[in-house]
């Protein structure tokens, strides 16, 4: 599993490859918080290559979203598979996040 960070215009994009679970959630948290401290405000986490997310992974997304919002920024999610979308719907987290169907849609400004 890996988290790669890149910049697309003003958006900091994090690609999640493999699983986002209890064993690696802190790595994602640290990478995003480092970018936030460095001045980044618009974030997109892309799940194109993500197999599954557990409750700890969902929890770290909730926590990061809160921190980014408190700093005046925004966290969006994109490219959730049908399985991953099911997890967000079951937990009602689809009501908490802005979820784009594609990476491109997630990158678009309002």
């Amino acid at each position: 599993m890996a988290f790669s960070v890149s910049r697309e215009g003003e958006v900091t994009v994090v690609d999640v490859t493999g699983q986002l679970i209890v064993g690696n959630r802190q790595e994602l948290r640290q990478k995003v918080l480092d970018e936030l401290r460095g001045g980044a405000r618009r974030f997109l986490i892309d799940f194109t290559d993500t197999a599954y997310i557990d409750s700890s992974g969902l929890g770290v997304l909730v926590s990061l979203s809160k921190k980014i919002r408190e700093a005046g920024g925004e966290l969006r999610l994109s490219s959730l598979s049908e399985d991953l979308r099911t997890l967000f719907e079951l937990t009602k987290l689809d009501t908490l996040f802005r979820i784009a169907d594609s990476r491109q849609e997630g990158l678009e400004a309002d």
Partner: peptide, 22 residues
């Protein structure tokens, strides 16, 4: 229940719920 409105923004407490749902 992690899905009630007041609990949705918590960062913990979804594990047992997911097990029961899945």
């Amino acid at each position: 229940d992690p899905t009630v409105v007041g609990n949705r923004s918590r960062s913990h407490g979804r594990g047992l719920f997911l097990m029961r749902e899945l």
